[in-house]
Structure formats: structure tokens, C-alpha cells
């Protein structure tokens, strides 16, 4: 069946090995180009289930600052990044905000909360 080779760069250390991941029917059958096992694990995950932490800001009303920074509390699927930024564009919270406060619950249906990474005091 369909055999596919994906090229990517391992980011786990400055070496930045150029990886070739072979996929057969959506299953990883080989990873090459890696210098250490971390590269293999990264390559497999990157082609089957790539995830990221998304960091951005949310509007704040009544605070000493107009925005507060935040992040997805856990990794989310890479494909959901823009659903998250869309959800954030409409979000708004009231000051005060503390580090760790949930800014948007279950953001874009990912099951992951978007939490504050900074403080904003009430004005």
C-alpha cells in the first residue's frame, strides 16, 4: 500500500538531526537520520500525533494591563492551533487575574484549559 517518507528536523537538542520517517498505511515503519533514541520517538510522534503548547494573550477588562498572557495547560493537537487562536480572539476576562487561573475552559473542545501565565491586578 501507500508508502510515504516524511522529512523533519529533530528539535530535542542543538544537533538538529535531519530525520526521515517512513510511513506505510499511516503506520511508522522506520525512522532514520537520528543520532539517538530521542530522535526516533520524536519522529514517530511528529508524524502520527504532533502536539504543541499554544501561548497567546487574552483581553482583560478592568485591569492594570489590557491583556494577560496564557498557555494551554497541556499539549494540544497541532491541527487545533487555529481553532484555539479563534477562540482566544473572542475571549475576555475580568481583572484581577493570577498565574494558573483558567482563562478559557476546555478551549476549542480540546479538553484542555487555557490558563494564565502572568498576573494582572485590578486597576
Amino acid at each position: 500500500m501507500a508508502k510515504e517518507i516524511k522529512e523533519l528536523t529533530c528539535i530535542n537538542c542543538p544537533l538538529g538531526c535531519a530525520l526521515e520517517v517512513t510511513l506505510e498505511d499511516g503506520e511508522v515503519t522506520a525512522v532514520s537520520g537520528n543520532t539517538c533514541p530521542r530522535g526516533e520517538a520524536y519522529g514517530k510522534k511528529e508524524v502520527t500525533n504532533p502536539t504543541r503548547i499554544v501561548t497567546s494573550t487574552v483581553r482583560v477588562t478592568g485591569g492594570t494591563r489590557p491583556v494577560v498572557s496564557g498557555k494551554t495547560k497541556e499539549d494540544i493537537p497541532k491541527s487545533a492551533i487555529f481553532d484555539i487562536t479563534d477562540a482566544l480572539a473572542d475571549a475576555q476576562v475580568k481583572a484581577p487575574v493570577n498565574i494558573g487561573d483558567v482563562l478559557v475552559e476546555n478551549i476549542a473542545g480540546t479538553g484542555v484549559d487555557f490558563v494564565a501565565t502572568a498576573h494582572v491586578s485590578a486597576a
Binding site: 498572557s69 498557555k71 498565574i99 501565565t117 502572568a118 498576573h119
Partner: peptide, 8 residues
């Protein structure tokens, strides 16, 4: 961590 969290 993010920058503000590290600073904190």
C-alpha cells in the same frame, strides 16, 4: 515554562 512564569 513561559517567560512570565519563569520570572515569577
Amino acid at each position: 515554562l513561559t517567560g512570565p512564569e519563569y520570572a515569577e
